[in-house]
Amino acid sequence: MNISQILFWILTVLALGSALGVVLSKNPVYSVLCLIVTFFAISGHYILLNAQFLAIVNIIVYAGAIMVLFLFVIMLMNLNAEVEPQKSKILKFAGFIAGLCLFLVIVAAIKNAEAKTQAAQLAGGDIGLIKNLGTALFNDYVLPFEISSVLFLSAMVGAVVIGKKE
């Protein structure tokens, strides 16, 4: 087991564990914190997969900006374990069962893929570098890039419409 494999397992366990933490934690603040841990673990995976730029973006955008926003909102609303609404046990159980079923079914469905032995390992390759990504983005993907500005515009307008006090 080489170092990358060890790292893979550590990061995987960390990601899954903290994701479970998000779901299970009673206190919303803990959930946010767990989520941040998940993001970090995923960023670690990115680095393992030679996606350095994405790893950074993930931390900056997700863990940094988005999660802070979440935290901010939670703090603003003063949410905590006491006021946290809880579903009935049965519904929760049903939810878990359903999630588990879905997992099992999807895994059962695709575990036998022909490409399953194909590896995705830390090795050479520099596509994850900002330069290469940038080149591709502004050559081949310039159209979606520009179009996503419309998305942002609309989100911006929307946030104003919804958020602004009348």
Partner: peptide, 14 residues
């Protein structure tokens, strides 16, 4: 699927 389970089991919109 953990994400989905969360959607299923939680009531807090956030």
């Amino acid at each position: 699927c953990i994400g989905i389970t969360g959607v299923l089991t939680r009531r807090n919109a956030i």
